[in-house]
C-alpha cells in the first residue's frame, strides 16, 4: 500500500470521526438528573443510617453463642471422662494383658 493510499485512508477515517451525527437532548432531561441525584442521596443516607446502627447486640449474641458451644463441649467431655468404662470392656481387657499388638487383635476379635 502506498503512502498516498494510506494518507487517503487516514483522512477518510478522520472524516468519519468528524461526521458523527449530532445529538439533540430531549426536553426536561435535567429534571431526571436532579431526581436521580435526590434518589441516590436518599439511598446513601439510608445506607449511612444502617451503618450507624449499634451492632453491639448482634455481636453480643454471637459471642454468647460461641461461649455456650464451648461450655457445652467442655461439659460433654467431662461427663465422658467421668463415667466409668462398661463392664464388657472391663472383662475384655482384664483377661488379656494389653501389652502388645497381638493382644489388641485378640480383644478386637472378641468384640
Amino acid at each position: 500500500m502506498s503512502n498516498h493510499q494510506l494518507k487517503k485512508l487516514e483522512s477518510v477515517a478522520r472524516h468519519g470521526f468528524l461526521t458523527q451525527a449530532g445529538f439533540i437532548p430531549p426536553a426536561g432531561w435535567q429534571d431526571e438528573v436532579i431526581a436521580d441525584i435526590r434518589r441516590r442521596a436518599h439511598a446513601e443516607k439510608f445506607a449511612g443510617n444502617l451503618k450507624s446502627l449499634p451492632l453491639l447486640p448482634l455481636r453480643l449474641v454471637w459471642r454468647l453463642a460461641a461461649v455456650s458451644v464451648t461450655v457445652a463441649v467442655l461439659v460433654c467431655l467431662t461427663l465422658y471422662l467421668a463415667v466409668p468404662e462398661s463392664a464388657v470392656n472391663d472383662n475384655l481387657t482384664n483377661e488379656v494383658a494389653v501389652d502388645n499388638f497381638d493382644n489388641y487383635l485378640q480383644i478386637a476379635a472378641r468384640l
Binding site: 502506498s2 498516498h4 487517503k8 485512508l9 477518510v12 477515517a13 478522520r14 472524516h15 468519519g16 468528524l18
Partner: peptide, 30 residues
C-alpha cells in the same frame, strides 16, 4: 470503494467524499 481511493486527490475536501457512511464505518472499525 477502497479501490477508488487512489483516484481521489489527497487534498480533496472531506465534504466531497462519495460515501460518508463508509468513512464513519472505517473510523468506528479502527
Amino acid at each position: 470503494w477502497l479501490e477508488q481511493l487512489p483516484d481521489l486527490n489527497v487534498n480533496h475536501s472531506a465534504d466531497c467524499l462519495t460515501n460518508r457512511q463508509d468513512a464513519v464505518m472505517l473510523a468506528e472499525w479502527l
